[in-house]
Design a protein around this nucleic acid. Structure first.
Lengths: 229, 229
DNA sequence: TCAAAAGTGTTGCATATACACCCATGA
DNA sequence: TCATGGGTGTATATGCAACACTTTTGA
């Protein structure tokens, strides 16, 4: 702080809701805390913002420390600032979400000391969370429900090659309702951002589905006039 | 701060984009600063968050200090956290917008000392703003462009009784484009949240328009399944 | 009587929804 | 041959966009 700002001590933190799609389920990354307060509780990964990093940078850093991943699109969605949300003092937290492609085992790199472990947990079976993190998660889920209708964030969750049923699966999990197969396929294909591959699913004991990939080029062209999924 | 939090000194502020509709134009409230940095510059009204107030409360307080108004719906839309956005130290700012009904002269109550004056300024003729406030404003305008299509925020700008042309005017100013009169009327009426009054515009030198009011009751009923204006 | 804004319907097009059966595959 | 999910089309309803003239009023 250089001079005149009349401030009390306060802290600003980042909390992240990291979504992943695995085993046909929607999951988020939670940590088991190693420190007070809420020692041994589950919580969203997060950390204090450093003096020399912007809010955005801080969010990327935390994601990187947890997963080893960089260059992931993260979106800020709300800042939570109740006076007593942190038992040890005034902490305002800026919440981000990101969508991650799991499946490889790249995720879950070295954890910094504030957590015992980190684990992908089905959003339908969340444990009790410390702080106001349940609330932060709820708002995050609401946010992506709205986003997924207009932005292709669902594809970030899928492997590079995927079937249309997998896409539909992701939509159904996020929106929390069943969708009509024929209508869904018509719509998702109509945007022209999926490329059909000359390749089929393998190792399944039923008719193998055609694989597709998301065409970022075409998407970038369409962007501007917002898409409606 | 009670104990263990390992923080550096930082500050968190609120900045507000207050929209008003006056004289057929869309305006925002700006202050002329009385203090360094950016003394004598125009800026968005804002202030530091106090130790004992939540982020929300802080936003309401600032609005109240500026305008004397309470119970106005304010919406948080983004938190700006570049390291050097404030020349005197690290200040992260949480941005809010609100829509105000002008027209009375209730607005612009006693100003706290940090500003020389406050003034409603046409968004088409904004002066150069201090800090990163132009950027904060731009994002706020983008936000309400998207919001106005789904939420009836436009009505907050209008007097209690208004004509359909006035509503259309607000939409055109915010969206930045002309709309077809017949289609607009059909659509806005089709939601059933406007009540036609047995009353006409007065003091105009042409055919007087029918007055309407926004029916909050009906709106509340519809709410949930989000409206599309 | 003129200027200025109020008010009013129809048509074509695109999009959304509802709905059921055959196909390919591996076990 | 059976179980499992893959893959496909049509009909209807709804919403959106384009478009022009008559009415009322006060100055």
């Amino acid at each position: 702080m250089k001079e005149v700002l009349p401030v009390f001590n306060s802290a600003v933190s980042i909390d992240c809701v990291l979504f992943g799609f695995d085993g046909g389920e929607l999951k988020i990354l939670l940590i088991e805390r190693n420190e007070e307060p809420f020692k041994d509780w589950w919580a969203l990964p997060g950390n204090l913002i450093g003096e020399d990093e912007s809010v955005e940078q801080s969010a990327s850093r935390i994601l990187h420390e947890l997963t080893g991943l960089s260059d992931i699109y993260m979106e800020q969605y709300y800042t939570f600032g109740e006076v007593n949300r942190h038992p040890q003092g005034r902490v305002i937290t800026v919440a981000y979400y990101a969508m991650l492609r799991l499946g490889g085992d790249k995720a879950l790199k070295p954890l910094t000391s504030y957590a015992k472990k980190a684990q992908w947990i089905n959003v339908k079976e969340l444990p009790k969370l410390g702080f106001d993190h349940q609330h932060i998660f709820d708002k995050g889920l609401e946010k992506i429900k709205r986003r997924i209708k207009h932005l292709p964030i669902a594809f970030e969750l899928l492997p590079e090659k995927f079937t249309l049923t997998q896409v539909q699966n992701v939509y159904e999990l996020i929106l929390g309702k069943k969708l009509d197969k024929r209508n869904f396929r018509k719509k998702i294909l109509s945007f022209g951002v999926l490329k059909e591959l000359n390749e089929k699913q393998k190792g399944v004991s039923f008719r193998a589905a055609t694989l597709y990939k998301f065409d970022r080029r075409k998407y970038a062209k369409l962007f501007g006039k917002e898409i409606s999924f």
